[in-house]
């Protein structure tokens, strides 16, 4: 177990590495008065939907289709969010509605 001075250094090191990965595109392409290369602007525009679809897959990576409850909670809650948002277009309502449903199902059936 790391303690004392080495603990402080470790936290500083992990913080620095984390910051540098986030700063990477800014260090490379954020030059004053100069536009980033065309391909970077292109990726910057079209990457967000791609990345967020990836994150969505990641959110469901541990869902079990082959064991009880066969991903039932997730499927019902996702449907609720999609339907609420398609017809009501109120982000907070969709998110709270889906989360409430998921949370209630979790309490009722899994605790």
């Amino acid at each position: 177990m790391i303690t004392g001075e080495k603990l402080i250094l470790s936290i500083a090191l992990i913080s620095a590495v984390t910051f540098l990965t986030r700063a990477f595109p800014f260090i490379l392409f954020d030059k004053n008065g100069r536009k980033p290369p065309d391909i970077i602007l292109y990726l910057g525009k079209y990457l967000p939907p791609g990345i967020i679809c990836c994150i969505l897959v990641y959110c469901f990576k541990d869902m079990g289709f082959t064991r009880v409850p066969y991903g039932g909670r997730e499927i019902i809650s996702v449907l609720a969010v999609v339907l609420l948002h398609t017809f009501k277009s109120n982000a907070l309502l969709s998110i709270l509605g889906g989360t409430f449903l998921y949370s209630v199902m979790s309490y009722l059936f899994f605790t």
């Binding site: 989360t99 309490y107 605790t111």
Partner: peptide, 27 residues
């Protein structure tokens, strides 16, 4: 229990909104 589903729901909502605003669906 289950409150972290809020983040999944957030990402779903964002995908729906992006889907409406991007004409291309390829990304």
């Amino acid at each position: 229990v289950g409150l972290d589903f809020a983040m999944t729901a957030l990402f779903i909502v964002i995908v729906i909104e992006q889907f409406r605003s991007y004409k291309t669906k390829v990304p």
